[in-house]
Nucleic acid binder design. Structure first.
Ligand SMILES: [Zn+2]
Ligand SMILES: [Zn+2]
Ligand SMILES: [Zn+2]
Ligand SMILES: [Zn+2]
Lengths: 154, 154
DNA sequence: GGGCTAAATGTTATATTATAACGTTCCGTC
DNA sequence: GACGGAACGTTATAATATAACATTTAGCCC
């Protein structure tokens, strides 16, 4: 919910996310295969949203469809989100319950924070209803400066 | 603000948009050259968000940088918006005063409607402030079904 | 376990979107 | 009409994503 300290110990975050993913896949009867697990781990290890080809390189000997298929799986099961502005992917902080992706993206350090704010979704829904529009998915991406990077600005 | 009727006479919309663009460019001391004007007209003629390469084809004898440069100009002067989810562009309904792009995108017919709802922006700003984040630009893209397409669904 | 089936992965090629780099033309200014 | 910066032309290439089809793997029934 809040912005991650860039110097915090990220290991436990990754471990916790992987465990939650295992759990969620069990619950859903989905198979978190080795490749999918490795891609998810790489996504989490990265402090910033990471692109498909960066993942590909990190994986080593794979071809594009391999990583895109893994990403499709992780997206379908709500374990990651796609950042449309960046063509990049980031771990979901709240897997297991459906929610629209809402992100704060620091244009300085690249860090991303996931919001989970019902009032944003509500505001969009209300505005949409005024047009008779039925919302089925929602992208909210705010670009700006994280707390750490505001200090460093001139 | 409201969803456009797909059968309305679009000619006047396009003409009005081009006139408003001329006016806005005059005000800003910016040059709406022939290519830029043609790209803007093509964007407006399309009822749905249109991609750079579709514009390129419609232009005829141009190369990619030509259309991307025109799009950059139109974006910079607030005459069009980019739809991140679609890698496509759409005319701005309210040029001349700065605002974040907020769109309703019909997944059935492709139509797009621009919102101009302060409460959405406010909700994001408030949530961001709770994280100490300073928002400088905002993308809101809701996918779903427009009024016309809801009727046609099973 | 052995065969069946569907899912997952491997592999190759290609589509789609976007930009780098550099030369030329156009236009307002002096 | 020379100058200088903005706009445009042209070629090549980068970055992102998918199509199509072969092969392997994993769960399942018997
Ligand atoms: Zn999430
Ligand atoms: Zn930052
Ligand atoms: Zn607008
Ligand atoms: Zn529709």
């Amino acid at each position: 919910m809040s912005f991650p300290n860039p110097h915090h110990d990220h290991g436990p975050c990754v471990a916790h996310a992987l465990e939650a993913a295992e759990e969620e896949c069990r619950r859903r009867g989905a198979r978190l295969t080795d490749i999918r697990r490795r891609v998810l781990e790489l996504v989490w290890r990265s402090h910033a949203p990471i692109g498909a080809y960066a993942l590909l390189e990190a994986l080593g000997k794979a071809a594009p469809p391999t990583v895109y298929r893994a990403l499709d799986f992780l997206l379908a099961h709500g374990l990651i989100h796609r950042i449309e502005k960046l063509n990049a992917f980031v771990g979901c902080a709240h897997p297991g319950h459906a929610h629209p992706g809402q992100f704060l993206l620091c244009r300085q350090c690249g860090a991303a924070a996931e919001l989970n704010d019902d009032s944003i979704e509500q505001a969009v829904r209300v505005a949409a209803e005024h047009s008779g529009f039925l919302v089925t998915s929602l992208v909210v991406e705010a670009e700006g400066l994280c707390p750490a990077c505001q200090g460093q600005q001139a």
